[in-house]
Design a protein around this nucleic acid. Structure first.
Lengths: 294, 294
DNA sequence: CAAATTCATGAATAAATTTCATACAAAGGT
DNA sequence: ACCTTTGTATGAAATTTATTCATGAATTTG
């Protein structure tokens, strides 16, 4: 195709072959092969020069279009796979859309304003499907769901608090141990939201037996239930959950925080734009952790 | 490209390879080669099945368009080179547009109604250029211009008459010899119109010396000059020249006719439609000649 | 848990493209 | 008119590319 267009443009085999960096017989052969495939000649050979004929002129315009299409396709891929102009496709847990993800995206776009983000949210099951089906490059979720096929990079450790209604009998305590909640109706999460497993595993290590009163769909609903005085729970202290009428009481035991981070599949191709985003998150989160320690 | 589209459509290497009549590794290799050329993967490999990824979906739509274009190009060529639907491209001498060519074309299109004609006219120089440059498949002209690179097929032998004005002193003669025109002002053709050379060569064989009075651009002008009483000439008796006020006097000598026919270059490709037209003209003209003889 | 299915990989083979050498034809210069 | 130059075509050899075969790894199925 490329050969044909060049020969057609220059109407000169030898010059065209030079432009294409091939020998003249190579071009002659391939043009002749094309002509045989089409069943018609594309050039008039009169003496020692060639000239596009009727069929050649017709065919040129189609071939030009075809090659333009291929070039467009390559350019689109190039654009989308370039770190500056490419796309970072992320799925994240619903609750993280309130504060963490928008902050992260905004900060990143100050550095790389041309990068496009493709953001999807959902519960743990949803977003894991996104990742498996390749509809997202990476997830922002809690660590619990990762396997050894996945890479994990922590973004933030959000402290967990015991949350009660302001009218609750424990509402004025400065701090609590988990055991103090024994007998209290506990508002749990329905679907395995990462956080749920995170809390359940901690509970199993303690002597305290959990009295599950309600299963809510998501964290915001849990907060709502507590506010309505229907029970108590353990929640990460994050915007979107800090409703009026809730009291956040620190947990006395060590290590009560919810680890949120980036996860992606080791075996999957990741676009340069996505790679750079991962790198950025790595730097910024380690900077943030260093800051927290000092 | 074809391989990629099939694999993309079926999302299944083995099935695609069967449809393409190649082995599965052949397809795997070529897809992998394409991916390396583009620098990005086009499929997600999860376990034992493949799925188009973001880049693959983008690329598919461009490749589909490109292949459509090539197919359109091939179809257009197919159409134009098919004897039924193709094009017959003819250049002819101006004067033959009055009767011969329209009749020929009309008769042919009764048999092959889908055939398209591309008709150009001009003087001898013009139409010879058309043929040399490949802008026409064939010419309808007089035999004189053909060389051994050309094929020749006679269509009609148009009788030549001595033409004088009705007010001319020879106007009432039933027939004339060429010598009878001695001393008469002769109206000649300017550019070598085939007929001109035809007449001049005959004149050279006779004792008669031609007294060239005017050089006209074309046959119709010759007729006009004669009608105006400016001279006499020899003309083929054909519609378009038979003006009122002209007298057509048969020539006594034998062999005074103008041979008009089809000519084309031996070394040039001729479309099936054009070939069939040539064949038709061959049959119909031999039929006509047989008819004339009987 | 074995059998079957599917894709990837690497070496061997088959097919294609390209080059080399050369022939043929047409322009151009003397 | 003859030689030189320029340009294309052709066929065989060399090279590159594509395909197959054999096989391995991974995942799904019965």
């Amino acid at each position: 195709m490329e050969y044909f267009l060049t020969a057609a443009r220059l109407q000169h085999m030898t010059m065209a072959s030079k432009e294409l960096n091939i020998t003249q017989p190579a071009l002659s052969h391939s043009i002749s092969k094309l002509e045989h495939e089409l069943g018609v000649p594309l050039f008039e050979r009169s003496g020692r020069n060639i000239q596009l004929n009727r069929y050649g002129m017709m065919f040129v315009k189609w071939v030009e279009q075809a090659l333009d299409n291929i070039r467009n396709g390559m350019q689109e891929i190039e654009e989308w796979s370039h770190p500056d102009t490419g796309v970072v496709s992320i799925s994240y847990l619903n609750i993280l859309g309130v504060d963490l993800v928008p902050t992260l995206v905004r900060d990143y776009q100050i550095r790389y304003p041309q990068v496009r983000f493709e953001l999807k949210q959902g519960n743990n099951g949803d977003i894991n499907n996104h990742l498996e089906q390749g509809r997202s490059d990476m997830l922002i979720t809690s660590k619990e769901t990762t396997t050894d096929h996945h890479e994990w990079l922590v973004i933030e450790q959000i402290p967990l608090y015991i949350v009660v209604s302001s009218r609750h009998r424990l509402a004025d305590r400065p701090s609590l141990k988990l055991d103090d909640l024994s007998g209290e109706p506990f508002v749990e999460l329905k679907n395995n939201c990462g956080l749920r497993n995170s809390i359940l595993s901690r509970v199993q290590n303690s002597s305290f037996t959990l009295d599950s009163a309600y299963d809510a769909e998501d964290l915001a609903t849990v907060a709502g239930f507590i506010k309505a005085g229907l029970g108590v729970s353990v929640l990460p202290k994050t915007p979107g959950l800090m409703l009026e009428g809730l009291v956040w009481i620190p947990v006395l035991e060590e290590g009560w925080f919810w680890e949120v981070g980036l996860t992606w599949r080791k075996d999957r191709y990741m676009s340069p734009a996505a790679k750079r985003f991962v790198e950025y998150v790595g730097h910024s989160s380690s900077a943030r952790i260093a800051e927290t320690l000092s």
